[in-house]
Amino acid sequence: MMDPILSLDTITKTFRDDKEACPALAGISFDVDTNEILCIMGPSGCGKTTLLRIIGGLEQEDSGTIREASGITPGKSLTAMVFQDHALFPWLSIYENIVYGLRLEAQKVPEDVVKERAEALLSLTHLDTFMNSFPHQLSGGMKQRVAVARALAVKPDILLMDEPFSALDTFTRRELEDEVLRIRQAMKTTILLVTHNPEEAVYLADRIVILSKRPAGVSEILPVNLPHPRDPSNPEFIKIREQVTRRVQGKPDPALQ
């Protein structure tokens, strides 16, 4: 069995100001397997985004360790983040937004590689004909495609996604969920997704990590043993979705009552 690409061991985080301390995470531990889609769910405000930001290096944990697999690909970034808001630069074209990270000093990627990688991602995300457009000319769903392509441009081993589709309509959301599955298959990228939507979690995830109320711990890790593509009207899909909903809400399973 392959070693996990990432292991979290008793991660804690407390936010402090002059008046009080607010514990957010209380001993989070779980492994992330290579090339899996792992969804993180939990009650509103329990610290899901904080955890994702710690994994991405945007926040510092108070204690605990995050261990990377020894086989992380040389020359690749460990993580890249897609936020709730696409956070595109409005003055840059779609092409320039996608390659922005590659042109940072730390990347030092040759221009011919930048061009090749950008063209491949434009094709993969169906943005070829919009490469010279600007963000204000695109729909919300297309802007999120650009955000995903920009994150993938640095070839991360793990793509972190913080409710990237929450502001989209149902049909666009499903279209982009299918895009995530296609990208995972094409690029063999491990994906960690924070979502409030049980149906989205069951539609995408190989496993679902459910956090408890703040200060959050791991309440349960549920496998989703359904083949892709998944049908939300399938009785087994509905059963798992309802189970996830109850777990997030802290309600008991009716079968156990």
Results as ranks from 00 to 15, higher is better:
Gly64Cys: 12
Gly64Glu: 13
Gly64Ala: 09
Thr65Ala: 11
Thr65Gln: 05
Thr65Asp: 04
Ile66Val: 12
Ile66Cys: 07
Arg67Val: 10
Arg67Tyr: 03
Glu68His: 13
Glu68Pro: 02
Ala69Lys: 08
Ser70Arg: 03
Ser70Gln: 09
Ser70Cys: 09
Ser70Lys: 05
Ser70Thr: 13
Gly71Leu: 04
Gly71Asn: 15
Ile72Arg: 02
Ile72Gln: 01
Ile72Trp: 00
Ile72Gly: 01
Thr73Ser: 10
Pro74Arg: 15
Pro74Gly: 10
Pro74Ile: 06
Pro74His: 09
Pro74Ser: 08
Pro74Met: 08
Gly75Thr: 12
Lys76Ala: 01
Lys76Met: 02
Lys76Gly: 01
Leu78Gly: 05
Thr79Ile: 15
Thr79Ala: 13
Thr79Phe: 08
Ala80Gly: 06
Ala80Lys: 02
Ala80Leu: 09
Ala80Pro: 12
Met81Ser: 06
Phe83Asn: 04
Gln84His: 04
Gln84Phe: 05
Gln84Thr: 11
Gln84Glu: 08
Gln84Pro: 13
Gln84Val: 12
Asp85Ile: 13
Asp85His: 11
His86Gln: 11
His86Cys: 15
His86Pro: 13
His86Val: 15
Ala87Ile: 06
Ala87Tyr: 04
Ala87Gln: 05
Leu88Phe: 10
Leu88Cys: 06
Leu88Asn: 02
Leu88His: 06
Phe89Met: 08
Phe89Ala: 06
Phe89Asn: 02
Pro90Ser: 08
Pro90Asn: 12
Pro90Asp: 10
Pro90Glu: 12
Pro90Met: 03
Trp91Tyr: 14
Trp91Cys: 04
Trp91Leu: 02
Trp91Met: 01
Leu92Cys: 05
Leu92Gln: 04
Ser93Lys: 11
Ser93Gln: 09
Ile94Glu: 01
Ile94Phe: 00
Tyr95Asp: 10
Tyr95Val: 15
Tyr95Ala: 14
Glu96Thr: 15
Glu96Tyr: 12
Glu96Arg: 15
Glu96Pro: 13
Glu96Ser: 15
Glu96Gln: 15
